[in-house]
């Protein structure tokens, strides 16, 4: 192994990678949530936003980084999981942990989020790129793909919405531990600031959860003409 990569292959190196990619993915969530707010405005705004996001070169470049970020986070998680399972191969007959459930279920919540991510990409990204998409007119009269329609029709299914909501809640649980844990892994812990970071972490995971849940709820209410 090259000496430069030792830092990444060691246990602590893997922790750094997990935390850096994790925090990067957190920033993605903010952008993603921010963009999705366009769903609340109008069909055209959202579709134009989608068009921008899928065509701007800088965004396309970031997309590659994002994919790499996801892959690294996932591969690293799997490697860590295997290592940890090997280290603790026998279980107690009677065990009482005192730590939070969210901290102990990162692999579980993470796996579910991965599964959701695949479904999510299939239903939106794949549909948009390769599916039979309806076109609509933008404000300038150009034909653009109607992403808004894909979203609304997905959320018409109560099962899908339920799946979406539960995945987002699990994401929230994942973030609840992940956010502050990332700081600890990077060695950023301080008597004065750590409580503040924990608070930010809680607020962040809570707002992300609430933010993403708001979309299926919005469309559900709309379907029943309650909005």
């Amino acid at each position: 192994m090259s000496k430069n990569t030792i830092i990444f292959s060691s246990s602590l190196g893997k922790k750094f990678v997990m935390s850096l990619t994790g925090l990067f993915l957190c920033s993605f969530l903010i952008v993603h949530l921010g963009g999705n707010i366009a769903l609340f405005t109008s069909k055209d705004t959202f579709n134009e936003y989608t068009k921008f996001m899928t065509s701007n070169p800088l965004i396309r470049f970031m997309e590659i980084i994002l994919v790499l970020g996801f892959l690294t986070h996932i591969v690293d998680a799997i490697l860590l999981y295997i290592r940890n399972k090997n280290a603790s191969n026998t279980k107690y007959i009677f065990d009482k942990k005192k730590s939070s459930i969210s901290s102990r279920s990162m692999a579980l919540t993470g796996s579910f989020i991965l599964f959701f991510l695949i479904v999510h990409l299939r239903s939106f990204w794949y549909e948009y790129k390769f599916g039979e998409v309806i076109y609509s007119e933008d404000s300038n009269g150009n034909q653009i793909k109607d992403m808004y329609h894909i979203v609304t029709s997905s959320f018409e299914s109560p099962m899908y919405s339920l799946f979406y909501v539960s995945a987002v809640i699990l994401l929230g649980i994942h973030l609840n531990h992940g956010f502050q844990s990332a700081f600890l892994s990077l060695g950023l812990r301080h008597k004065k600031y750590t409580p503040f970071i924990s608070l930010i972490g809680k607020l962040f995971s809570f707002s992300i959860t609430l933010g993403f849940i708001s979309f299926p709820i919005y469309f559900c209410l709309k379907n029943f003409n309650l909005w």
Partner: peptide, 14 residues
Amino acid sequence: MDELGFGNCTNTGD
């Protein structure tokens, strides 16, 4: 520590 086969830290704090 790694070589001996100890697991990694997931900051659960137990």
